[in-house]
Amino acid sequence: MNKERKENNEFKDEFISEIIEKGRYSISNEDFEDQILQKIHTNVNDKEEIISKIKLSLKFFCLGLVLIFVCLLGLILRDSLSDQNTNVLTYVLVLFFTTALGILSIENYKRVINNYSF
């Protein structure tokens, strides 16, 4: 700490300080703050719109996934009830891969939504 203070004191210079102080700038544009805030609001609104669209897309994706599950389960049930066991393994495999794909896609959706939100 002392070393740091010593290091800084080494460069103390009233003359240079005065020059730098006198040459100080300030932003003359009075609307500067408003302009930035407006830009930020636009940015936030755009993000919100994108998020709402992504969420809608996610809903449809989930709906599609549920439909696939229902169809596959229906087929498995039908085949098992009618003693046609030939395709059950295929259905289970398809069900497994669809589930894995679904989970991965939903995770991806989450990541995208997180990127667009605070």
Binding site: E4, E7, F11, D13, I16, I20, E21, R24
Partner: peptide, 9 residues
């Protein structure tokens, strides 16, 4: 250093 009084660090 002189305007903002920022340390060397």
């Amino acid at each position: 250093f002189y305007l903002e009084e920022t340390s060397i660090k």
